[in-house]
């Protein structure tokens, strides 16, 4: 995971940032060595990394092309169910199930692209929301295959990399970190490729992009297929890590679709570091508020969590990365070199 693995297209200007990110990833990799391997913080950080990776996958369509999907749970759940059903019924390794899940998610994305890609703005968001909900209803009703509302338990197995099964959370931390690094590299690569420029054209003005000869449908389709596949793969890691899930846990609007978009938005959409920052805030914040207010009156912790989200959005609607940029410019009084990261 060195800078060498980055595509050559990265400009010289981006290289220091690439090195910085590589250093960050390396630092992140050794963090769990200092924590109780079975403990709470490893677990919370693993969930953080998983949601950072999900936010980054969402960022590929949501950030680059500004296609605000509220239905990414569809892909997440398809990956989770595909691999777990194969594991339970055929003893297939989740690593193989992961590819099956990715393939199925690509199919779902292809099918959904037909009715949704002509839609703009809010219509697109609401249509994807409905699509995710439709899959939840299917998972709930198709009891013979999915286990229905009762949910599925990942079989208890001895520690094994091949079966992606560990009793302690620490190995999952590294798997989630690897997933985050991979998705981030894909995001970065797309962002600086020709596809990235086309997506940005879609974001700025779709009609104008069409006029100058950009095949916007194809650009959006590629981005959404990659995003769907990545989301499904992370879905597999998530359920191997949590061992149990039901339709609400993987297809839910609030639990998955909105949460992973939130991660990207709180951090700052369209930026490389945004989803990471967002996840580092959103996931541990929920835990900290829950811990701080444990034993208090019912509803208080969720209330405070919601209030903090509102406050973040009101202070800086473009996300925390933009806020940091603003603060740094304000403090150092120099036009920020990385100011571009905010947008």
């Amino acid at each position: 995971m060195s800078a060498l693995s980055l595509p050559k297209r990265c400009s010289a200007l981006a290289r220091p940032r690439a090195l910085l990110l590589a250093a960050l990833a390396a630092a992140a990799a050794i963090v769990p060595l200092f924590l109780d391997p079975q403990g709470y913080w490893v677990r919370v950080l693993t969930l953080t990394l998983i949601f950072a990776a999900l936010g980054q996958a969402w960022n590929i369509v949501g950030g680059l092309a500004n296609q605000i999907s509220l239905g990414h749970a569809a892909y997440f759940g398809v990956g989770a169910y595909a691999s777990t059903i194969l594991l339970i019924n055929f003893g297939l390794s989740p690593w193989i199930g992961l590819f099956v899940g990715m393939a199925l998610a690509v199919v779902v994305a292809l099918v959904l692209s037909v009715p949704t890609f002509r839609l703009k703005g809010h219509y697109f968001a609401l249509a994807t929301l409905a699509a995710g909900e439709a899959l939840r209803v299917i998972a709930n009703s198709w009891q013979g295959v999915t286990g229905g509302p009762v949910g599925l338990s990942v079989p208890f197995m001895p520690d094994s990399f091949w079966m992606m099964s560990y009793g302690a959370p620490r190995p999952f931390y590294w798997i989630a970190l690897a997933a985050l690094v991979l998705v981030t590299l894909v995001f970065w690569w797309i962002k600086s490729s020709a596809l990235g420029y086309r997506l940005r054209a879609v974001k700025e003005n779709e009609q104008a992009a069409e006029v100058v000869g950009v095949n916007t449908f194809r650009a959006k389709l590629w981005a959404s297929l990659v995003s769907a596949a990545a989301t499904a793969a992370i879905g597999v890691v998530y359920v191997q890590f949590t061992y149990f899930f039901d339709p609400d846990a993987v297809f839910g609007v609030a639990t998955v679709s909105v949460r992973l978009a939130l991660v990207a938005i709180v951090g700052g959409i369209g930026t490389v570091i945004g989803p990471v920052v967002g996840a580092l805030v959103v996931v541990p914040l929920e835990e900290l508020v829950n811990a701080a207010l444990q034993g208090q009156v019912a509803g208080l912790s969720a209330f405070v969590y919601g209030a903090i989200l509102i406050a973040v959005i009101l202070v800086e609607p473009r996300g925390l990365v933009a806020l940091f940029g603003r603060l740094r410019r304000g403090l150092g009084r120099r036009p920020g070199g990385a100011g571009e990261a905010g947008r």
């Binding site: 978009a261 509803g299 208080l300 919601g306 509102i310 609607p317 473009r318």
Partner: peptide, 28 residues
């Protein structure tokens, strides 16, 4: 009002936050 000019995503999440706050305020 403060987020009327903000990006669409910010608006969506302001209202999501509002939903969480109102639900739990009612609970309390």
């Amino acid at each position: 009002r403060p987020i009327l000019a903000a990006p669409q995503v910010a608006q969506i999440f302001l209202t999501v936050g509002l939903l969480i706050v109102l639900e739990n305020a009612a609970l309390m």
